[in-house]
Every structure is written in C-alpha cells, then in structure tokens.
C-alpha cells in the first residue's frame, strides 16, 4: 500500500524509514595518515591506506577497516570529521566507533545550511568547563524549555582499547516534546551535515603540557553512523536520487521541493503545513473547473472562508471568469446544456448589432438588452404589435 494515503485514498502523514544517512557519503577529514607514507600507513597502497572513506563505507573491504589521522605531536591536537548528508535529515542518533583509545574530548556539531554555519549538538568530556566552557550535563537534562547542547561524559575505553561515542538527539531535549507539535524540536533534530571534532586525545588527560609538544598520538575510528530519517515534513515515505544525482523527497500531498516544504504551483488553496500523525495537511489543488492552470493564494479570502479555501484562479480560459473560473466573462453566457467544466460551457452572447442596446447579455440566461419593441434572446426580432422600421436607432416601431 501507499504509506502516504489510507485505503480510501485520503492523504495521511508519512515519513521515510530510519537509515544510516552517512552510509556511503564522502567524509572530509582534516588529517589522514599516509602522506607521506610511513611503515604503518601509506595512502597510495590500498592494503596499508586508512582513508576517511572507511568511516562510512558499507564494509566488505579486504584492506584496513579504520580511518587514521596523522600522528599528532603538537597543538592543535584536534581533528575534524565532516559528513555532508546531501540533504536535510531528521536525526535520531550519531555514533562513532574508535579503533584505539577514544579521545578524552569530542564535540558534535550540525549544520542546517550545507556547511555554511554550524551549531553544537553535544560535547563529550570530563573537563567540560576547560575544553568547552560548559557545565557537565545536569541530571535533570536541559535547564530551559527547549533542546540544548549539553556536555556528557567522554566515550569510555573498552577492555580491548576501543571505544564508542553514542549520542541520541533526545539526550539534549527536554522530555515531553514531540516532533509533531514542537517546532523547536523539529529544528533541533534537523541537519544537512554532521561534524565530529576530536578535540583532545585521552593520553593527555590531566597533563598540564597538553598544548605543548607531546608523544605522538593518532586518532583512529570506523563506523560513523548518522541514524535519521530523510526530512520530508510528513509528505513522503521515501527519498530518491533526482536526475542530477541529488537526494530528494518523493513528495506527495501536492507538495514539492527537496524536503516537500512548499505546495506545488496549482496546489495553493490553503497554506503549506507539515503533516502530523493526525492530519496530513495536504496541499489542495485550486478549484478552477478545469479552466485554469495557475492560481495564487490569498490569505484574506482564506480567513474569510473560515480557513477553508484561499486559492484564486489565474488566467481563466474558455471565456470563463471569477475566482474559481465558475462564471462566464462579459459578452458570454452560461450554456445550461454543457457542464461547467466543459470548454464550451460559455457561449458568446451574439447580441444583434441593431436590435440590441449593447453587446453584453445576461451571463446566466444569455438574454441581450433589447431596444424598445425588439424581442428574442439576441434581440433579433420585432415584438408582437411592432414592425421593422428603416431607422437603425429604433428598429421596431408600433404597427399602425
């Protein structure tokens, strides 16, 4: 079935499935080993290369599994991993598996504008104030009413020396907010890019000389996962690659755009809205009786209609007129034998050039305005008791 419509064909809110948005995406690492080649790492040899692509690869490679930074021997010791997701996603979690001792401090950032600006999602450190100027996460969660980037404990080392950074976007959000009804939560979970800043190696923890030259250190990680749903605002159940290779929502409900964030041109009878589980808020096509291809939205009309309809048809064709192309334009009248949607619904008045007092007939009945003594729908005959004269000004005169 169609997730975006019920069995009766009525629209309903729909969302794409949960995916790893980072899978297969390019990762930009500020430092990667192997250039120049060392004994342990050679970027030109696939058997000994540790490229950043390994962070988001699908697996199955015969060579190494982990990305590695260069050996870091002096400040700055931070290394940045940036993953463009290709389009907006609504995040659920971010995780990164370390192949060696995990860093002592990590910052997780997001961008909502394809990398032009960045905002923190969370920090991970035992020295929150020193590293990030933040207080450790309060046990009660965010202090304010909305989500915020908190400072959590750093990823813990496992017995085998590895470690896992795991962040749930709900960790920074106060309980009780739900995505359907909270614009601030919708904004909080939305990201086009993810950036992980490995700020400080563990081995330097507590070392007063951590900004000076120290023993070489290498960050090493694999499996950067960004769990989330392609952001389609409740109007698509999947995202597809368009002709240019860009990931875009497969929009339904009369919406369009990469995130289904606007109504299609003819679907502007009411304002765009995000769908919820209770209401699809589908964009509605303007009602133009088949006589117009374009329409525009008018907020005043929408309010006056009790927030039901605000579409105004543009360029009504087939001699129709009106907000819904629902009556005939001047000089034409409604042919009752044709459906309103028929292209022949409006017929020319055809008022008689001499018998009629004007060219405009009644738009409903087709009756032309007749001069004295003239009769007929088009005013083309003298009435009973009248006869044709020679004067075009008074074409019918009383019969003597």
């Amino acid at each position: 079935g169609d997730p975006c419509h019920d069995e009766g064909g009525a629209p309903r809110g729909c969302v794409p499935g949960l995916v790893n948005a980072a899978l297969g995406r390019d990762v930009l690492a500020s430092s990667t080993c192997g250039r120049p080649a060392t004994r342990a790492c050679d970027a030109s040899d696939p058997r000994r290369a540790h490229p950043a692509a390994l962070l988001t690869a699908a697996g199955g490679t015969a060579g190494p599994l982990c990305w590695r930074s260069d050996s870091l021997v002096r400040a700055p010791l931070n290394v940045t991993l940036t993953v463009p997701l290709g389009k907006a996603f609504e995040l659920v979690f971010v995780s990164l598996r370390f192949c060696s001792q995990p860093p002592a401090s990590v910052a997780l950032l997001k961008s909502q504008d394809h990398g032009r600006s960045w905002a923190p999602l969370g920090f991970f450190s035992s020295r929150c104030a020193l590293d990030y100027g933040r207080l450790p996460r309060p046990s009660t969660g965010p202090a304010g009413p909305g989500p915020e980037a908190l400072c959590f404990p750093p990823p813990q080392a496992q017995p085998d020396g590895s470690g896992l950074l795991a962040f749930s976007v709900q960790d920074g959000s106060p309980p009780g907010l739900d995505l359907d009804n909270s614009p601030v939560l919708q904004d909080w979970v939305t990201a086009t890019d993810i950036r992980v800043v490995l700020t400080r190696p563990t081995m330097l923890l507590g070392d007063a000389r951590d900004t000076e030259a120290v023993a070489p250190y290498t960050y090493s990680a694999t499996e950067l996962q960004v769990g989330g749903r392609c952001k389609c605002n409740g109007h698509a159940s999947q995202c597809l690659l368009d002709a240019q290779g860009h990931l875009v929502c497969d929009c339904r409900h009369g919406t369009e755009g990469p995130d289904c964030s606007r109504c299609k041109p003819f679907y502007c009878d009411r304002p765009w809205q995000r769908a919820t589980t209770r209401d699809a808020h589908a964009c509605l096509a303007c009602s133009c009786n088949g006589h117009a291809r374009r329409c525009r939205f008018n907020m005043e009309l929408y309010r006056l209609s009790g927030r039901r309809s605000g579409g105004v048809c543009l360029n009504c064709r087939h001699n129709t007129a009106g907000r819904h192309c629902h009556y005939c334009r001047e000089g034409f009248y409604r042919d009752p034998g044709q459906a309103l949607s028929d292209r022949r619904a409006c017929r020319a008045c055809d008022c008689h050039p001499v018998g009629a007092a004007g060219k405009t007939c009644n738009q409903t009945t087709g009756q032309c305005p007749c001069k004295d003594g003239v009769t007929g729908l088009t005013c083309n005959r003298c009435a009973l008791g009248f006869q044709q004269s020679r004067s075009p000004v008074a074409p019918c005169v009383k019969t003597p």
Binding site: N380, C382, Q388, R390, P392
Partner: peptide, 23 residues
C-alpha cells in the same frame, strides 16, 4: 406568432453611418 428576424437590408444608414455594423 414568430416574427421574422430583422432584415439588415431594410435599414437606412444615411444619418447613422458611424453606427453601421461591419457585416
């Protein structure tokens, strides 16, 4: 009784040339 349609040929346009419709 149905009256005949107006006969355009019977009208005298001498004084109303500017009103004469194009046929």
């Amino acid at each position: 009784e149905v009256m005949p349609t107006l006969d355009m040929a019977l009208f005298d346009w001498t004084d109303y040339e500017d009103l004469k419709p194009e046929v």
